[in-house]
Structure formats: structure tokens, C-alpha cells
């Protein structure tokens, strides 16, 4: 599965959205339950499923699904 698709799937699972609703432009204020706690839940799921670790700065910088995809791509490329 393509990396972007997998991120989309995980985001959909954590925020209980349909995958078609998960666009790169999706931001926390567009999703009711996207708060700091569920953002951490998302990060934990992403870290486990891609076997990567994000830094505190990186977590704080996640302001859209697109940004998350770029972060994951960078880490996966590095490892």
C-alpha cells in the first residue's frame, strides 16, 4: 500500500471519518474530535504502524493531514 493511502486510512480510523473525507487540506479545526489527546493517539498509531518516532517539535508542527504525510515520508526515507 502507498504511504499516503496508509496515512489516510489511519487518520480515518482515529478520527472516525470516511477515507474520502481525509484530504491533505484537512486541519484540526475541521474535525470535532481532533484535540490534543486524539492527536497523540494519532501519532502513537502512526509511529507503531510505520515503526518511526516523531519528535516533540514535529508533533507540534502537525497542522494538517498533508503535513503529517510529509513528516512520515521524511522518516520512512531516512530509515
Amino acid at each position: 500500500m502507498d504511504l499516503n493511502e496508509k496515512v489516510t486510512e489511519i487518520v480515518a480510523d482515529i478520527f472516525e471519518l470516511d477515507e474520502t473525507e481525509v484530504a491533505d487540506e484537512l486541519t484540526p479545526d475541521m474535525v470535532d474530535i481532533w484535540d490534543s489527546l486524539s492527536q497523540l493517539r494519532l501519532v502513537t498509531a502512526i509511529e507503531q504502524d510505520f515503526d518511526i518516532k516523531l519528535s516533540m517539535d514535529e508533533i507540534e508542527s502537525i497542522d494538517s493531514v498533508g503535513r503529517l504525510k510529509r513528516l512520515v515520508a521524511e522518516h520512512v526515507k531516512l530509515s
Binding site: 489511519i10 480510523d13 482515529i14 493517539r41 502513537t44 498509531a45 507503531q48 504502524d49
Partner: peptide, 11 residues
Amino acid sequence: LGARDVHVVHR
């Protein structure tokens, strides 16, 4: 079960 699965089951 991973973190994501647990969340799905929990929901």
C-alpha cells in the same frame, strides 16, 4: 492489537 486497532475496537 496495535494502538490503532485498540482505538477501532474501543469505538
